Deep mutational scan, measured.
Amino acid sequence: MFYPNSPQTSPQLTQIPYGQQYAMMQRQIQQPYHPFATTEPQARLYPYHYQGPIQQEQGGFITQQSTAASPQYVQMRVTPVDQSIMSGYPNQTANGSSSSSFNYNIHPQQQQQQQQQQQQLRHHAMPVGSVPLQDDRYRKQLIVNYLAPDVTSTDLHELFSRFGELDGARIIYDKQTNMSKGYGFVYFCHAEDAKEAVERMSGYEFHGKWLKVGYSTNPLNIVPSNSSPYVHAGSRGAAG
């Protein structure tokens, strides 16, 4: 039997160049792979992502010199942007860049009308829970959420009447099932009393439920100042 490094198959040491006398086997001759043993700084910083320098080929596509990437890492192929796409944008300079302001050559009167329309939209648009300043009635009506099913309009009136005089209180019921929808409205005579009720009743436990109280901004629920107070009856038909 002959071994790869046996004296019968191995040459004389004098015939082997210096430095390879003890590297006779194939696994010894093959050098191990060192990912950080390279002179390129990109490979030292990113050993798993770097795959060699990027070269520009004919046709405008950018390719990489090395083989496919590892399945664990996804390499994105980048193509140059066609400058003709950006030619339609206004205020574009000769080098292809555009300024931040756009001039669509709008007539001054049209621009003024658009600004007025935007101001009107901001004036009428009102986020949930906010209180408008032009109508004091919005500051007097509250919406009470997360009410228990057994709470009546009379219970709601008695709960909030300790903060001040009320114009009314009612629970909203479903017309088909005649069941409470879980929320109601309270109408105060003074805005200061309503503000105190919002601050003190939010998070209050009532009939096993934690109440959420806020201003009601729905104009359909506003009680006119010259109208008669609501009837605080315990029956659902009268309260709904």
Rank of each mutant, 00 (worst) to 15 (best):
F2Q: 06
S6D: 06
P7K: 10
T9Y: 15
P11N: 10
Q12Y: 11
Q12M: 11
T14G: 06
Q15R: 08
I16E: 12
P17A: 10
Y18H: 06
Q20M: 15
Y22V: 07
A23P: 10
M25G: 02
Q26C: 07
Q28S: 07
I29R: 06
Q30E: 09
H34Y: 13
P35H: 09
P35E: 05
F36N: 10
T38P: 12
T38H: 03
E40G: 08
P41H: 13
A43Y: 15
Y46W: 09
P47T: 14
H49Y: 12
Q51P: 11
G52T: 08
Q55P: 10
F61S: 04
I62L: 13
S66G: 09
T67L: 11
S70N: 09
P71G: 06
V74P: 05
T79C: 14
V81G: 11
D82I: 14
Q83N: 07
S84C: 13
I85G: 09
S87T: 11
N91Q: 08
N91P: 11
N91V: 12
A94F: 13
N95A: 09
N95Q: 04
S97G: 14
S101M: 15
S101P: 13
S101I: 08
F102S: 04
F102W: 12
N103C: 12
N105Q: 10
I106W: 11
Q109Y: 13
Q114H: 07
Q115L: 13
Q117H: 08
Q118A: 09
H123I: 11
A125F: 15
V131D: 07
P132H: 13
Q134T: 08
Q134K: 07
Q134L: 09
D136F: 06
R137C: 02
Y138T: 05
Y138P: 02
R139N: 02
K140L: 01
Q141V: 01
L142Y: 10
I143Q: 00
I143F: 01
V144Q: 03
D150T: 08
D150P: 06
T152F: 07
D155E: 14
H157N: 12
E158G: 09
S161T: 09
R162I: 13
F163C: 03
G164C: 00
L166R: 07
L166I: 03
D167Y: 11
K175I: 10
N178L: 09
G182M: 01
G182F: 03
G182D: 03
Y183W: 00
G184N: 04
G184S: 01
F185E: 00
V186P: 02
F188P: 01
H190C: 04
E192Q: 05
V198N: 03
M201T: 02
H207A: 07
H207F: 05
G214S: 07
I222H: 08
V223F: 11
N226D: 03
S228Q: 08
P229V: 12
Y230E: 03
V231P: 10
G240C: 14
